[in-house]
Simulated scan of single mutants.
Amino acid sequence: MAEDTEHRFWYNLRTGAVEEGMVSLAVDRVGPFATREEAAHALEKLRANSAKWAAEDAAEDR
């Protein structure tokens, strides 16, 4: 069964807006998120993931 992306939420990196469905170009958006609230906090999640991955990479380099 295919994922219903038209009823999911995306964060537009260019405008900072939360969008329902694939409104913007793929290069400008991240997601999908299940709720508008999750999409609104996309940058926080991206920063947290980046920090986690950087720490994991640094630990592997030791």
Rank of each mutant, 00 (worst) to 15 (best):
E20S: 15
H41D: 13
A59R: 07
E38G: 12
T15K: 05
A51V: 08
K45R: 14
A40H: 04
W10P: 02
A40Y: 01
T15Q: 04
T35K: 02
E44T: 13
V27I: 10
E60V: 14
S24H: 10
E19H: 09
A48N: 03
L43I: 03
A59K: 06
E20A: 14
K52L: 00
D4T: 02
F9K: 04
S24Q: 11
A59V: 10
E20H: 15
M1T: 14
D57V: 14
S24F: 06
A42F: 00
R36D: 12
R14W: 02
A39R: 10
L13T: 12
E60R: 14
L46D: 01
E44G: 08
H41M: 08
E60Y: 10
S50P: 02
R62F: 07
S24W: 09
A54V: 08
G31P: 11
A59Y: 02
W53R: 07
R47F: 05
A54H: 07
K52P: 00
E60C: 09
P32D: 14
M22D: 11
L13K: 11
R8K: 13
M1S: 13
G31S: 07
A58F: 01
D57L: 13
P32K: 08
L25H: 00
R47E: 13
E56S: 05
R36K: 13
D57S: 14
K45W: 13
A40G: 06
E3P: 12
A55D: 13
Y11D: 06
E37D: 12
M1F: 05
H7V: 00
E38F: 08
A17M: 10
E20C: 15
V23W: 03
R36C: 11
E44V: 14
H7L: 00
A54P: 03
T5A: 03
A51F: 03
L13P: 06
V18A: 00
N49C: 01
E44D: 14
L43A: 00
W53I: 12
N12C: 09
E38N: 13
A48P: 02
R14N: 07
G16H: 12
G21Q: 07
D28L: 00
A48C: 00
T5N: 07
A42N: 02
P32F: 06
D57P: 09
E20I: 15
A51D: 10
E19L: 11
G21P: 03
E19Q: 15
A58Y: 01
A40R: 04
L43Y: 00
P32A: 12
V23F: 03
W10A: 04
M1K: 12
S24N: 14
K45T: 15
E44H: 05
V30S: 06
E6R: 04
E60F: 04
A54I: 13
S50V: 13
G21D: 07
D4Y: 00
E6Q: 10
A59H: 01
Y11G: 03
F33K: 08
M22K: 13
E6M: 04
E56C: 02
M22W: 09
A59D: 05
A34V: 11
T5C: 05
F9W: 11
V18S: 01
A59Q: 06
D4E: 01
E6W: 04
A39G: 12
E56T: 11
E6P: 08
A26T: 14
S24M: 07
V23Y: 05
M1W: 07
A55I: 10
A2V: 09
T35A: 03
A51W: 01
